[in-house]
Design a protein around this nucleic acid. Structure first.
Length: 476
DNA sequence: ATGTCC
């Protein structure tokens, strides 16, 4: 396939065949080789064929093969004539990342790392099929799905101030009556659970500050201990995706829409079924924010226990929480006109700049934090959204490092002892319920996050603020 | 990602 380089880190495949728009790839000479041999490219071009797509189908530097849409893909659609695609959101609806700050410095906690790791591992339900001690009735679960963070405040899992530090304040428009009983049944035992695969909880040390003013404004500094978590809506979101794919699939034909594979389902936005999907998706998104909030509650408890201090005294405020599997109604200028679009971000993080109407409070003054986790050894980046992302990528950037080895390849090449030794050399403590998952998630199975950040920063889609490295890793 | 295919 012919990529045309249009700037140092931007590549275009011009529209051809059934494509309605071009495909735009944010990448680099080092990364583009991974795309060319991956099914992700085919998927990126397929998204460009969908009705009502605006400007171009976009691939991020961490693009790789997913179901229907590529992971690391962005597609924006006109409400009039456009489509919604459950595969453009992903099975793990509102999979996302949260960072919690502390006022602890590394030197203060370095002798307590093992105790902290053990305490966290005991308190955090992790692994495939993990359930929580906090289970709720169907009715109460539905209230959580409707209210998001407001429900978490009401139940004592959150304090009022947490709300302003979360994308969309932890609540999208939702209607739990659009969610199947089966999906709710799966969700009611999953409040405050980490899950498996690439989901994780980490205690990190801030090792570098790139933007002192912004770091100050956000309360970040070198040597600071911060907590990262990556999880989503668990079985609940997965069930909703499955349900709506099954509901939409047999009805696609009447619009002249054709499947290219089992999950390449899309449906006119204005149809009732699409509206119901979006309200179910909102319910799962709210559930995911509540899930990360209950986990935050556990993390605050664990730190309080180990350091014998109330979590507020430990400065355990949320820095920010981003959704990287989601579809949102947002406004963009298209051909000189302000248009309302449905933006699918699948494995892509919102990157809104200062002054954006959707940002509030201090983030309106600074732009939003963009949280880009790397692998369990090399650490993660905190960036800030920029105006250029609004003009070029519908306010979006990548979502993380992306795999370089498939799960199967990783398990074949890497033993659990290999992973342990590699982390031990760096002084990183690993806790896991599943040694196979640890091998699948080995640092060597991932690209360097530096490679993913490079095109983003050089194209000015987001700007560097800080970098952190893991001390404690908890995996499913 | 996911009670890894009711």
């Amino acid at each position: 396939m012919e990529f045309k380089r249009v700037s140092p880190y931007k590549f275009v495949v011009e529209k051809h065949g059934n494509m309605r728009v071009d495909a735009l790839l944010i990448s680099s000479d080092k990364l583009i080789q991974y795309v060319e041999k991956d099914k992700a490219l085919e998927q990126l071009l397929w998204v460009a064929t969908l009705p009502g797509i605006v400007k171009y189908s976009i691939g991020m530097p961490d693009i790789h093969q997913g179901y229907a849409f590529p992971i690391g893909g962005v597609g924006a659609f006109f409400y009039d004539g456009g489509v919604v695609s459950p595969g453009g959101v992903g099975f793990d609806i509102n999979c996302g990342v949260r960072v919690i700050k502390t006022n602890l410095k590394y030197d203060y906690i370095k002798d307590s790392l093992e105790e902290l790791g053990k305490t966290l591992f005991k308190m955090i339900p992790a692994g495939l099929g993990s359930t929580s001690d906090y289970t709720f009735s169907i009715e109460e679960s539905k209230r959580a799905m409707k209210l998001g963070l407001e429900w978490a405040v009401e139940k004592g899992f959150a304090k009022e101030e947490d709300i302003e530090n979360i994308e969309d304040n932890g609540r999208l428009e939702a209607d739990p009556d659009c969610v199947s009983r089966h999906a709710i049944e799966r969700g009611r035992e999953e409040f405050g659970t980490l899950g498996a695969g690439n989901h994780f909880l980490e205690v990190d040390k801030v090792v570098e500050i790139y933007d002192k003013d912004l770091a100050n404004a956000w309360g970040l500094y070198e040597g600071q201990i911060v907590v990262w978590m990556h999880t989503g809506s668990r079985g609940l979101g997965h069930q909703i995706a499955t349900d709506y794919l099954d509901l939409m699939r047999p009805k696609m034909e009447k619009f002249g829409f054709k499947l290219v594979d089992r999950d390449s389902v899309y449906f006119p936005i204005q149809e009732d079924l699409s509206q119901r999907y979006l309200l179910a998706m909102g319910s799962a998104a709210n559930f995911a924010w509540v899930n990360r909030q209950v986990l935050t509650y556990f993390v605050r408890k664990a730190f309080s226990k180990v350091f014998g201090m109330d979590y507020e005294k430990l400065g355990m405020e949320i820095l920010y929480d981003v959704a990287h599997n989601i579809a949102k109604q947002e406004q963009y200028e298209v051909n000189g006109k302000l248009e309302t679009l449905l933006v699918h971000r699948k494995g892509a993080t919102r990157s809104f700049p200062k002054g954006h109407p959707k940002l509030k409070g201090k983030f309106k003054e600074t732009g939003q934090p963009v949280l880009l986790p790397g692998d369990m050894k090399r650490g993660s980046y905190i960036l800030v959204g920029s105006e250029k992302s609004i003009k070029e990528t519908f306010g979006s950037v990548a979502h993380g490092a992306g795999r370089v080895l498939s799960r199967h390849q990783a398990v074949k090449q890497i033993t659990f002892e290999d992973v342990q030794k590699e982390l031990q050399r760096e002084g990183i403590l690993l806790y896991t319920n599943d040694k196979v998952v640890a091998r699948e998630e080995a640092p060597l199975a991932y690209k360097s996050i530096d490679l993913v950040v490079e095109p983003i920063v050089n194209e000015g889609l987001a700007n560097l603020v800080a970098r952190s490295k893991p001390l404690i890793v908890i995996k499913g």
